[in-house]
């Protein structure tokens, strides 16, 4: 008690503060060796390739010889109608992936969480998530081709399937591929939303019910706000996944016919590995990277600030 009443001198304060700062600096310095392997790996595996890709986008590179051409690859991309279509498809994929897997995932999680036997029902939605993208494409190829299961089923019911085919005309091909992706990607959304639903304290729901809230009102005012942290993760993941979708498109349409169903990831692959135009492919990669980083950063910054 006596010690507490003794006034501290200004010099003493400064000494303690200096000592604390020194300790802090030493602790930080000692932490550096622990960070180095992780930093080194990020630099080697991510930053160096990115820097090389940015440089490559300023070159005319056929994989064998390379020459610096400045911004020409970017100029060519802007004037290429198939690149504009590819951007539009990427946008469609992003919107589609936000609405369908996230919306369907939320619906399935809520319904199967509240009905008896729901845990068994949700298996039907969760299991496709265990299937790889390539297998999903093969399965949906059997379904969607002109001689596939869907058209056979339509004929079985005495109807006429569309003459254009499901995978042959834009925007039908992009839309059906978004549906195929929804079938596969909904599972992870269901799992994450279930985690969120089960983390809501029963007391909160009980309090809401006692206050007279029920059904949709209980959901919108009590449940939905508490799903917010999970929603941030699910939407963030969906945005990133939609921007880098490749395997499903490549195996179902190869980005065609022509290039009508290409997204930026497919355009990047075609320019680089089919046309051997590594410079143009790198330019598409840079544009895609900027869109992915900018959209993720904007979204997360906004959401986390709100949180």
């Amino acid at each position: 008690m006596a010690l507490a009443t003794v006034p501290k001198s200004a010099a003493g304060d400064a000494t303690i503060s200096r000592r604390r700062a020194a300790n802090h600096s030493r602790a930080r310095a000692q932490a550096i060796p622990f960070l180095l392997p992780a930093l080194g790996l990020v630099a080697i595996m991510l930053l160096v390739p990115f820097a090389v890709t940015v440089y490559q986008s300023f070159t005319s590179d056929n994989g064998i010889t390379s020459s610096f051409i400045g911004l020409q690859n970017y100029g060519d991309l802007i004037n290429d109608p198939s690149f504009v279509r590819s951007l539009a498809n990427t946008f469609m994929w992003t919107i589609g992936t936000l609405i369908l897997p996230v919306g369907v995932g939320l619906l399935v999680a809520i319904l199967t969480n509240s009905i008896p036997g729901g845990r068994w029902l949700r298996f039907a939605f969760v299991l496709p998530y265990a299937i790889s993208g390539a297998s999903t494409a093969v399965i949906w190829g059997f379904i969607l081709r002109s001689d596939g299961a869907l058209n056979q089923a339509i004929r079985f019911f005495g109807l006429t399937p569309p003459s254009s085919g499901w995978l042959l005309e834009w925007p039908n091909n992009t839309l059906v591929m978004i549906v195929a992706n929804t079938w596969q990607a909904t599972g992870v959304c269901v799992i994450l939303f279930l985690v969120g639903l089960q983390a809501i304290p029963a007391e909160t729901l009980e309090a809401g019910s006692l206050d007279g809230a029920s059904g949709a009102r209980l959901f919108w005012h009590i449940v939905f706000p508490q799903l917010r942290p999970v929603m941030i993760v699910v939407i963030g993941m969906s945005i990133a996944n939609s921007l880098r979708v490749f395997d499903l498109i490549w195996l179902l349409t190869k980005g065609g016919p022509g290039s009508v169903s290409e997204t930026l990831a497919v355009t990047m692959y075609r320019q680089t590995f089919i046309l051997s135009d590594y410079g143009a492919g790198a330019a598409v990669a840079v544009v895609l990277a900027i869109i992915v980083v900018a959209s993720s950063w904007l979204y997360l910054q906004r959401q986390l600030k709100k949180g």
């Binding site: 065609g256 016919p257 022509g258 046309l275």
Partner: peptide
Amino acid sequence: PPALIEGGVQILASFMV
């Protein structure tokens, strides 16, 4: 030349549709 062929098959694929 390969780039002409690779682009050509895309255009011909569109015609087939």
